[in-house]
Every structure is written in structure tokens, then in C-alpha cells.
């Protein structure tokens, strides 16, 4: 376990800086080689702080999916996506009917203005689509 120094830029700020450039940033612990997501200061389990940032290729597989049906509003998709680099994140699969999304489908990264003040954040669309 390495000692954590002062946090000069928060993991969240780094993640958002990647997103602002249209990229999905994630961390890898150099010692173990394991990907880490959500971004943080130490690697879970080991406590190592040798985390380096990488940019995901943005290709993944739907791990779990739900169509959320808010009363009086249009339904929308919420999915868990397993990125090919080995980490999982919550996101949404767009560009298709929300209840057409299936577990196991391949997806690719698109950026959508979902953040506060319209900040771009990672979302996904079906890989098979628009081909």
C-alpha cells in the first residue's frame, strides 16, 4: 500500500475533463493492472494509490438494463455497460426504443449533454445500429 498525497485535482474533476474532450476516462492500478471505476484516490482492496488514467475505446456490452417509466413523462433507458477494458458503469443506451435494449447487446460510446449545465457525459448506442 502506498501513501496518498494531497489531492491536487479530484478524481471527479479529471473524469469531467476527459468527458469535456468527448472521452471516457477510467483508471488502472499499475501494480495489479486492474481497471478502477468509479474514479477514486485508491485502488479498492489493495489500497494502492498508483492509479493512472486511460481513455476507454468506448466499446462494451449491456450487462443489465431497465426502461424507466416516470409518471407523465416519456420512458427512458438506464443500462449497466461492461466496457471491453474490464470496468462497468451506469449509463443509458440511446438511439433506439428504451425497451428494445437487451442484455448482451454490443454498444459504443456517444457523448450526450446529460450533466449539469448541459455538460457532455458518456452514453451509448447500439453497435449494430446505423451500420
Amino acid at each position: 500500500m502506498t501513501t496518498a498525497g494531497r489531492i491536487e485535482e479530484s478524481p471527479r474533476a479529471t473524469f469531467l475533463a476527459y468527458a469535456a474532450r468527448g472521452q471516457l476516462g477510467y483508471q488502472v492500478a499499475k501494480g495489479s493492472g486492474r481497471p478502477v471505476f468509479f474514479p477514486r484516490v485508491t485502488e479498492p482492496v489493495t489500497g494502492d494509490t498508483d492509479l493512472e488514467w486511460r481513455v476507454s475505446m468506448g466499446i462494451g456490452t449491456v450487462y443489465a438494463t431497465t426502461t424507466v417509466r416516470p409518471r407523465g413523462d416519456e420512458p427512458h433507458n438506464v443500462s449497466m455497460v461492461d466496457l471491453d477494458e474490464g470496468f462497468r458503469m451506469m449509463s443509458t443506451v440511446t438511439g433506439t426504443a428504451p425497451d428494445d435494449v437487451r442484455v448482451g447487446q454490443r454498444v459504443r460510446l456517444v457523448m450526450l449533454p446529460l450533466g449539469p449545465d448541459g455538460a457532455e457525459l458518456p452514453a451509448f448506442e447500439l453497435l449494430e445500429e446505423k451500420s
Binding site: A64, T65, T66, P70, V78, S79, S91, L121
Partner: peptide, 17 residues
Amino acid sequence: PYSPMMPISAYALAASR
């Protein structure tokens, strides 16, 4: 940001899997 309806959507995701 992805507007899950919590806590229902969390359990829905587990059920889908």
C-alpha cells in the same frame, strides 16, 4: 445523470440480469 428511478431501477437492473 442517467435518471434511474431509485431505488426501484437498481432492483430492476438486478432482475434484468
